[in-house]
Design a protein around this nucleic acid. Structure first.
Lengths: 182, 182
DNA sequence: CACTTTGTAGACAGACCAGTCTATCTATAT
DNA sequence: ATATAGATAGACTGGTCTGTCTACAAAGTG
């Protein structure tokens, strides 16, 4: 990936938005941190929301890629599901961890920001579909229900770990996932 | 409760902060909706953060009171836990439902707002303690772990319902709670 | 009546915000 | 050599934000 102004902007936006949230980061800070001129932002993106859409899209894709990589490495569906929760544990170990950035984004978006709302829904649906698929292969009688249960545990684990500043909620959610698969 | 300016401010702040989040509501809107003069805010509260602290404290207490009422009405620990998830379902039916206001607050607070951060932690610890107590009375071998699992389901349920605009995540979390208690 | 409390209306300061515009610079490709 | 495309710095507009200040009004209490 070349070091273009556009890429520096997107990467910086991902980092700052993840750390503090969409509405708590101004474009002045973004262009300063990205070491880019103000007009380079508006030549590459229509608006701050447009940059946010690009940044959160990339963020979502990377998170899904990490989940898919964890699934691929696992020997069976059950260990794949547990590996996904281990991934949450790794994320939570970063000092700047502030929970799931997409959940935080949901708390920052207004109802009229349809594109961002759709992005959040799409991301959560994608994670849910992976859980459902794994539950199905694992032989659950109602894989859709189990998938939804696992997603609730996942979201609750990341949220709880962020609030408490501890990975105990993730460990608990992981064990609950294992119990649900028995 | 008398109709003082202070009470109108607190109630209005609770409503607006719950609907849109701390940083998305300005004091101009609050004083307009509360039908109160600007100085009545600053005569009763030191700052916007001070008003927020009062509003979210009351909000947290009301949520805990509702949980305690649901517990009291239930015949046994298991049905008490399920009743708490039914409470989530009722909350999610409100047209202005936007998920757990304390989780949203966590997404809006900066690291230097210690009072608000402590309030969020305290609230989640209080909910967790109720789950732990119920798990204990229900005879779980590791009630602290079960309590943490139930809290993760609760947080994930409210978050999921808010994002999807549907109570399916709450129903799934409720069924997962029932499974964990078996 | 005098005094205090509580509230009101609105101007104002100082900071920050997103987004526009201009003028200049630089590299590359023709 | 020149044209083009991308980048830069920074002024500027119009708006919003929190918080302060002043001057005034109503209402209860001694």
């Amino acid at each position: 990936m070349p070091e273009t102004a556009k890429n520096r902007l997107t990467e910086t936006a991902i980092r700052l938005f993840t750390e503090r949230g969409l509405t708590q980061v101004g474009i002045n800070e973004i262009i300063r941190e990205a070491d880019v001129a103000r007009m380079s932002l508006y030549n590459n993106f229509r608006s701050k929301d447009d940059l946010a859409h690009a940044a959160y899209t990339m963020l979502s894709q990377r998170r899904l890629d990490a989940i898919d990589a964890a699934i691929k490495q696992a020997a069976d569906p059950q260990s794949a599901i547990l590996a996904i929760f281990d991934l949450a544990g790794e994320l939570a170990c970063a000092p700047s961890f502030r929970g799931c950035a997409l959940i935080a984004l949901a708390a920052h978006t207004q109802l009229d920001q349809r594109d961002l709302t759709a992005l959040i829904r799409h991301h959560k649906a994608a994670v849910r579909d992976r859980f459902i698929q794994l539950a199905k292969v694992h032989g659950q009688t109602d894989p859709v229900l189990t998938g939804r249960q696992l997603l609730a545990l996942w979201d609750g684990a990341l949220t709880g770990a962020s609030i408490e500043g501890d990975i105990a909620p993730i460990a608990a959610a992981r064990s609950a996932a294992a119990q649900l698969l028995r």
